[in-house]
Amino acid sequence: MTSIGTGYDLSNSVFSPDGRNFQVEYAVKAVENGGTAIGIRCKDGVVLAVEKIITSKLLKPGSNKRIATVDRHVGIVSAGLVPDGRHFVSRARDEASSWRGVYKGPIPISALSNRLGSYVQAYTLYSSVRPFGVTAIVGGWDSEAELAVDGQVGSGPKSGSGGKVEGAKTGGPGLYMIEPSGLYWGYYGAATGKGRQAAKAELEKLDLSSGTLSLVDGVKEAARIIYVAHEDSKDKEFELEMTWISSLDGPTKGRHEEVPKDLLEEAERAAKRALEGEDEEEDATKGNSNETERMEE
């Protein structure tokens, strides 16, 4: 970054001569230091996972959750500044609730992501604010069933509500990632935070675009990827936090919930086993490099 110190990095809403907003780029730096967060869009649901770095032994294990529920069917995980993430989630909840107020139904994941993208983008426009120091992954499930309106009391017309096409497929998993610039894309698999490069490499191996990965397998892959991504910052302890949203006939019935303890532990065990397996392969080639690492610890 040769342009640093030229004065164009001091204020939001000021472009540098080569067309960059440095404040946004600094915000991305904040994200790159955060614990790895990933999302996987599976055939029948979405998994969110985060590597929660333990900053103090005085914190109660399992507390201070990093993945938030936004509406029944939406969860958000973010990497970067935790308080910025909290504010982002709070805005997401307001958006989801205001959508219900207007449309009497749950907000589609795409619409929520769009609104949040606009919100984040607005923080890049003014000199009086700084951009969000988070990259957030929004995961959810748009109901595939014919939606009842909130507060609806009747069953509606027997032949299906107006304009309904018989057998048409609606709803499904939704996964979006929103960056400090306000940029957002829909993803098959999303990763952000410190270990994003390793995580992305792993995600790419999963062939997510074929839409064949099941949710339960997705949970195991997510756990493994977080463990893989943690390899580069092994000196820090971490907790694995995972949530999921399944289809209506799946384990969470379209709701965003924590992955049950036994499944989470199973996935963690499998992840550790997979890593050890890799280590053994590495040991065969690299000799005892692993041992020296442990000694350093």
Binding site: K65, T69, R72, R93, G151, V153, R255
Partner: peptide, 15 residues
């Protein structure tokens, strides 16, 4: 009913 729904959603923000 909508009021109750919104309360239920808020209740489930915490795990």
């Amino acid at each position: 009913d909508r009021l109750l729904e919104s309360i239920d959603i808020r209740e489930n923000y915490s795990t």
